[in-house]
């Protein structure tokens, strides 16, 4: 598989201080046609990673170093104008809460048309035809009528379908899905995940699936990156990570989530909570919560080390 996007040493933080970065040396690759999971709990930086790729970081937060190579070009050097040309066309993003990411005062048809107006030279009739096509692709019943609907008239699952339709309107090469099903009910979640995977095959696009749900990772992704406190702590094939997690945090996450069909017993607990950015612990960032921590963990920070091809872990006491 060829590499579609390569992110190298990405550092992101508030513009005024360089010490407490939100993302700390994030490097990974997205291959052509794969589904890559970015897993972690709130505040680990997974959404920030997505926003930096899309060039959508909040105003007071800047990318201080690193590069994002997409299709042979470095996105970090792009001007806003140039970014606008590829955003929505070559790369697209869907968000967790479709109600806030759709404009409540415009119809669905209007909002889908905007994508075509920006990126293509279609006339009004063609735009309508294409809009109906994309709505059919995401399996919205009665697409012609739905073009006239406002976001509030649709259910959560339908809104997420509209978001996906908009994202896929111009056949992007990469789709970044930021918790696309977290706000949805399980039966609807299953529909949406199936849809994303089906469309991925049809379009042969890469998907970066950002999620906190290990179930979603296991069922939809090929590779995964686990993040903790702004760093990548583990990376590998999904089967390998589930078979043998190497980082104590990954292991803890897997053990602490109750799993359907597992016997009723006391849940594993990761003590404490995620440290805040102002008081990062010295040494390994996970050390206050780690059951395997040794003196070394409190003194120096482990590097993200590659132990096999495509398998990386950041820990002094790898669980081998």
């Amino acid at each position: 598989m060829t590499t579609l996007m390569e992110i190298k040493d990405l550092k992101v933080g508030p513009d005024n201080n360089q010490i407490n970065s939100i993302l700390d040396n994030i490097s990974f690759q997205v291959k052509q046609g794969e589904t890559l999971a970015v897993v972690g709990e709130s505040g680990c930086g997974k959404s920030m990673t997505a926003l930096s790729i899309m060039g959508l970081l909040p105003q007071n937060i800047k990318l201080s170093s690193g590069s994002i190579i997409f299709d042979g070009k470095d996105l970090t050097s792009f001007t806003t104008k140039k970014m606008n040309q590829i955003r929505g066309k070559d790369m697209a993003m869907i968000f967790q809460e479709p109600l806030t990411s759709l404009n409540p005062s415009f119809t669905i048809g209007n909002q889908i048309a905007e994508v075509f107006k920006y990126h293509t030279n279609y006339n009004a009739a063609e735009i309508k035809k294409r809009s109906i096509e994309v709505l059919q692709k995401v399996k919205i019943p009665d697409p012609e009528e739905k073009l006239k609907a406002y976001p509030h008239e649709l259910s959560g699952g339908m809104r997420q379908r509209v978001m996906i339709a908009m994202a896929l309107a111009c056949n992007p090469k990469i789709l970044i899905a930021d918790e696309p099903t977290t706000a949805l009910d399980v039966t609807i979640q299953a529909q949406i995940l199936d849809l994303i995977l089906e469309l991925q095959k049809d379009f042969n696009m890469s998907v970066v699936m950002i999620t906190h749900d290990l179930g979603v990772v296991a069922e939809t992704c090929q590779r995964a990156i686990v993040m903790y406190a702004g760093q990548i702590v583990e990376e590998g094939k999904v089967e390998d990570i589930f078979e043998q997690p190497l980082h104590p945090y990954t292991r803890g996450l897997m053990l602490s989530a109750p799993r359907l069909g597992s016997p009723k017993e006391k849940l594993h607990v990761i003590d404490g909570m995620v440290p805040d950015r102002e008081n990062m612990p010295k040494g390994c960032r996970f050390n206050p919560r780690c059951e395997f921590a040794t003196d070394k963990c409190f003194e120096s920070e482990p590097k993200l080390e590659e132990i096999q091809e495509g398998r990386r872990v950041r820990c002094w006491n790898k669980l081998l």
Partner: peptide, 27 residues
């Protein structure tokens, strides 16, 4: 049955074995 089969299971080995009942439509 549908509700239970929709829950993603955190075990990649079960991915292909699982019988999924995907419901159509909304509540």
């Amino acid at each position: 049955k549908a509700l239970m089969s929709s829950v993603p299971i955190a075990d990649p080995k079960l991915k292909d074995k699982k019988q999924r009942i995907i419901l159509t439509g909304d509540v």
